[in-house]
Design a protein around this nucleic acid. Sequence first.
DNA 1: TTGAAAGCGCTAACAA
DNA 2: TTGTTAGCGCTTTCAA
Lengths: 357, 357
Amino acid sequence: MRITTRDPNNVKTSLTAAKYSHSLTFMPSLNDVAELSGYSIATVSRVINGSDKVTASTRESVEKAMKSLGYLPSRVARRLRQKGGLRHLLGVILPNIQNPFNAEIARGIEDIAYANRFAVILCNSDDKYEKEKFYLDVMRAESVDGVILPPNQESAAAVLEVIETGMPVVLVDRAIRGVQVDTVEVDNVIGAKAATDHLIQLGHTRIAMIAGPDSISNSRQRKRGFEKAFKNANLPIDPELVRTGDYTQDTGRKLAADLLDLPSRPTAIFASNNFMALGALAAIHKRNLRIPEDVALIGFDDLPWAETLDPPLSVIRQPAYEVGQTAAQLLLDRLSNPELPISKLRLSPELILRKSC
Amino acid sequence: MRITTRDPNNVKTSLTAAKYSHSLTFMPSLNDVAELSGYSIATVSRVINGSDKVTASTRESVEKAMKSLGYLPSRVARRLRQKGGLRHLLGVILPNIQNPFNAEIARGIEDIAYANRFAVILCNSDDKYEKEKFYLDVMRAESVDGVILPPNQESAAAVLEVIETGMPVVLVDRAIRGVQVDTVEVDNVIGAKAATDHLIQLGHTRIAMIAGPDSISNSRQRKRGFEKAFKNANLPIDPELVRTGDYTQDTGRKLAADLLDLPSRPTAIFASNNFMALGALAAIHKRNLRIPEDVALIGFDDLPWAETLDPPLSVIRQPAYEVGQTAAQLLLDRLSNPELPISKLRLSPELILRKSC
DNA sequence: TTGAAAGCGCTAACAA
DNA sequence: TTGTTAGCGCTTTCAA
């Protein structure tokens, strides 16, 4: 059933439309306030910036003038002039805000930003170099206070360049090796090892991994954790059972399908991120296989609705919100004190057992 | 099981740290390029802006100078100066990016923005007036080209004020009555009616609705659609079965629980948004009720993983990505031609039947 | 085709 | 305590 009400004719003309054409956005300036209040722009500026070198009565009349004009200081002009000070603007570049993991990070960042009266320019890169480069240039051109992003192999050089210019950068979720820059990661090796350990303890030996791209540091780390668990248990890895996807639901589904159609199929699957786990789940369902009896499944990244999936999905939970908060706080700390030593933080993941393994 | 590796001591000092303290972000300016190339800043500016009044040879040497300096024009200075032109910056204020519905809208907006070389300041308001107001001020102070947001009852006045200043605004998902401003909505009445109709056709008469807050236009519209379906079918609404939540998973769970614990419980539940549907799902599961045999469930808003829920959730799907795209395109059109008539668009929702009803 | 100079809205140094 | 002024990086007349 499809209901169609989209109505291209439902377009009305109005008086308001005419207004737009004449009114360039009206913004009173310092000058306007100065004129109205009878003081100089310097004094008005002092009032705005809460200088204590203004008489109470002066402050009062200036503030009255500001209010009556609806004056709002231009962040643009301020940013242009004030070279040393804070611009109260952060740049954040994430692969895709539609991934709940990224949304959580973004939210963590923004909550800290808001608490400190910072606004955030948020961009989606899809891990595409072209977009990353464009947005990195935007950040410089907007002269934001600093940038938070998860680098990948391809973008690393561009990120390094930005760091060279002196722009504070905080890496989240992914790292660049051998570079001294503030970084907030999750311990992916330990997380992946914990997931695999659990599968092994359950008696599985034919365990498949749907891994992420090698160009992403956390993906390599998760692979390492997987291998570590096997080595620890003195178990051999069947290379046929390790597949590399691209962190999308689609490859998760396809690779799980391939795995499931193997002559001797795995009894357990570890999916290296949330989307691929969801894809694997769909593929298993499609084959009417029981979870965990026929195939056990565990994913990396929690989902707010993992509890309500069929079956409730066991996962390695990343503290994504905290990652975002920590990164933002690190950046703000760096801004207020550039001499701070570099921090490389690694937050802990958590094994959450539900019903899928 | 909890693995803890957070290591506050894993903090290293380095040469890079020292660098920060001295290097104020280095940004070559027009002046630097002018000096290096031997031309005036005016000429350099012309080269940047692709003026045709420059000799090929001049352009060439200026471009060489720009490249060798890694020059990037400051969007800030440009914005300050150029009163008429485009700033290539959009403001977007959404309630919460962690809601996949909002994430989809945001993505739709950004894809159009990126295609036109615009960057986006994205903010979460939590539908809190204080945050909305702060971010609205930020948009003005940053002199963005325009703002996209879903208004609510409380913020409407502030939004109107912004519109008064001449700043282009596009409303998404929610409308303000009696105001001529570009708006992209979804037909909530028809959507909610379709959901309720379907439940009625299935033979249900005790149908509960978990509605959203009355302060949000789409919530009121969905209630209207629900009532319309009842009236159409000549069925009475049991007021006890209509509960008002706040669009969060938590109230969805609580209100569903109340409903389910009623002496004569409803046989079907219509949840007015995605989060409340998820909450209701959890509440039903907790009581070990079968879906749809004991209680049928339908939600508003699709979820990328609705298929994999237990059971796969039937929903009214909103074309959220298209809503975002359309809004952004509307805004860009308005920027390039302010005389354009006001558009009030209403996109179509879609009934997607899966297994929950 | 190029350059000189004014000025966008603001901060900050200096003077009064 | 207040005002004058220079200048942030750029665009845009106006002259040359």
